[in-house]
Write a protein that binds this DNA or RNA. Structure first.
Lengths: 340, 340
DNA sequence: CTGAATCTTTGAATCGTTTCATTGGTACGA
DNA sequence: TCGTACCAATGAAACGATTCAAAGATTCAG
């Protein structure tokens, strides 16, 4: 077990000064081809790998960006993470990923860790109230971009998706199919996402004179909750049934679909057109492929990095512009709302 | 934007030497209560946060462990990751997470990054052939533990799950229910996991005189692939049908289940008992809750960290013992194989 | 009161980079 | 031939922590 080679070892081996080795690494243009070759060969022969701690200590900042998400298991975040990593790589940064798991304590631990690591900046989908901590970070020159959460005040940049627009899109689609008796299935409206999606749907319905929207409360956002709503629907008499159902997320929609499929009384999409939200992988492989609203996760991740870069680039004196970028979701039509 | 306070600022503010501040941080017992109080107060007032780069430079190693998984979106890995993070936190380390996404280039980038960061050790589910790189790391005192992959040679520690045992467990369960005409549904047997699970199933069947096992090849491991296998089954005459089906993973099983449910000719579990593998979240909320084989993901993650710690603790001279820990999976019985 | 033993505190040296003022060379026009 | 640019290469200083030998303070037995 041999200690790693340092830049000094490389310098000795290549018979140049340490500063020259550093230049080869960081400003290749400043070094003549001959010298560069010698140095690169020495690096290769010694298997030299730059010690990032030393570089960072001298440079005063790292090349890493902290990213704290609510749940890496959630495909939405997985996709955001991957896009952020790719975007960061393009600008020469690496992403340190933390999963808070909706736990404020874990979240706080990650902020500690990232602060000790002197990350350049922080992307976060906050669980708890972290504004105090973010204020301190900003004061020290570490900017934050909120992800999937509109900044309360205008103090932070943020990227989010317009859930109201998504709700409108879904309801509008059902209306365009000629459906008029719509139902919205969604968990507690205290969840902002659910409330916004409902509001968007109501907006769409209000635009069509003879259309109505019924709200079916669900207990949570799971397949099982969806199934219990579906079971209620199946028991209704035909004249009481909606002809278009919009679920606040795909899991709910899959649950509703399972109920209807099991009972074999109501057909999708003929009797009831069904649309979900999120466009999870399972949507396409459901018994009846499910229409859904897709969120531009790649754009979210990429833009979050870009906003961060903007703040990092802006000179200290100039107060950085905080920008709130809001994306518009997209309708994905499949068989569950197909046909006239 | 004020620069962060350094240990020197703290020392000045508390009117002590820098060494004393360091001692307060690292060896509190060596410092008198009075001094400690003053220093802690200064730390608080200045909002001092230790610069990990400097500590690491001096200490020669970091307090982080690199973890590279094939796909953070896969619940299996998500769970492993979380367990590893928790276990690492207990011993005062943090985990740097990398997602290779089955891409050898990304994997290699993460190894580079982690090497620059001078991680203490590496946990990895390898995609490409990384043995050369791992050898170099080990030579430099950075041990590796393979995750979900048995080490080819005896050069590395590893944690994995016994897929043969899992296959045996599943088939045995169907046999115990009295089923005799079994079928195995699984993707290309070039995938080690699939081959092992099949082999385990064959072992179980061989133990029961009048039992048989038919192998149904699937194209991939998706819900859709499962559905196409299910469609084939539905078209068969009754005397050609299996009465127990074991799928190499839950997605396949869900696809098969959808086919049977749609056709409404065959009932689960009465006509066909169905069992999957992995116990994903969707298994419990399927139309008919799906029996499955659960892998001890938490134990995997925890043990991987423990094996790494073992190698780190063993003195350099003593050749570290490489241990291959193999876990046994667990049967989870639900409605899809319920009843006599 | 003295000397030894123990407990605290000190501060210079060190880790491996990057930075930058300085030096040494080379080329070119006058 | 000289002076002026320009280009490459040099190497000491600095970043912020930890370490450790040494100094200083305190305690206590005799």
């Amino acid at each position: 077990m041999s200690r790693s080679a340092s830049i000094k070892d490389v310098a000795t081996h290549a018979q140049v000064a340490v500063g020259t080795v550093s230049n080869v690494l960081n400003y290749p243009d400043r070094v003549s081809q001959r010298t560069k070759d010698r140095v690169l060969q020495a690096i290769d022969e010694l298997g030299f790998v730059r010690n990032d701690a030393a570089r960072q200590l001298r440079a005063g900042h790292s090349r890493t960006i902290g990213l704290i998400v609510l749940d890496v298991g959630n495909p939405f975040f997985t996709s955001v993470v991957r896009a952020a990593e790719d975007a960061a790589a393009l600008q020469g940064s690496a992403v340190l990923l933390g999963d808070s798991g909706h736990d404020a304590a874990r979240e706080s631990n990650y902020i500690d860790l990232f602060q000790e690591q002197r990350v350049q900046g922080l992307l976060i989908s906050p669980v708890g109230d972290v504004t105090d901590r973010l204020d301190i970070l900003r004061e020290r020159g570490v900017p934050t971009v909120l992800v999937d959460r509109l900044a309360d005040e205008e103090q932070y940049s943020s990227v989010s998706v317009d859930d109201d627009a998504g709700g409108y899109l879904a309801a509008r689609h059902l209306l365009d199919l000629g459906r008029r008796r719509l139902a919205f299935v969604g968990g507690p409206t205290t969840i902002r996402q659910v409330a916004d999606r409902l509001q968007g749907a109501q907006r769409a319905v209000a635009e069509v004179p003879d259309a109505s929207l019924e709200v079916l409360d669900s207990e949570g956002q799971t397949v099982l909750a969806g199934r219990s709503v579906g079971d209620q629907l199946v028991r209704r008499s035909a004249d009481q049934l909606p002809d278009g159902v919009f679920c606040a997320n795909d899991l709910l929609a899959l649950g509703v679909m399972q109920s209807l499929a099991m009972m074999h009384k109501l057909r999708i999409p003929e009797d009831i057109a069904l649309i979900g939200y999120d466009d999870i992988d399972f949507a396409v492989s459901a018994v009846v492929p499910l229409s859904s609203i897709r969120q531009p996760t790649e754009a979210l991740g990429r833009t979050a990095i870009e906003l961060l870069a903007e703040e990092l680039d802006s000179p200290d004196s100039a107060q950085p512009r905080h920008r709130a970028v809001i994306f518009t979701p997209e309708l994905v039509v499949r068989q569950s709302t197909a046909g006239a």
